[in-house]
């Protein structure tokens, strides 16, 4: 196990590479989650503002 972690003396280079691999991919995958929440709440805000105007939205099919 210690030998595995030591990576023949190249531990720093090998494990940093693996960490960069996981770190960047995780950031890349998590970033859209926040964006998705923001987009959906923007859309909901727009819908609420429209409803608050208490007027049937114009230009829609009867």
């Amino acid at each position: 196990m210690t030998e595995f972690i030591a990576m023949g003396g190249y531990a720093f280079y090998v494990w940093t590479s693996v960490a960069v691999f996981f770190g960047v991919l995780a950031a890349e995958a998590l970033a859209p989650l926040a964006q998705r929440r923001r987009v959906l709440s923007e859309i909901r805000g727009r819908l609420q503002r429209r409803a608050a105007r208490a007027q049937p939205p114009r230009g829609e099919a009867p």
Partner: peptide, 9 residues
Amino acid sequence: GDAYRIIFV
């Protein structure tokens, strides 16, 4: 040695 293992990422 083991440095080549970086190849896998």
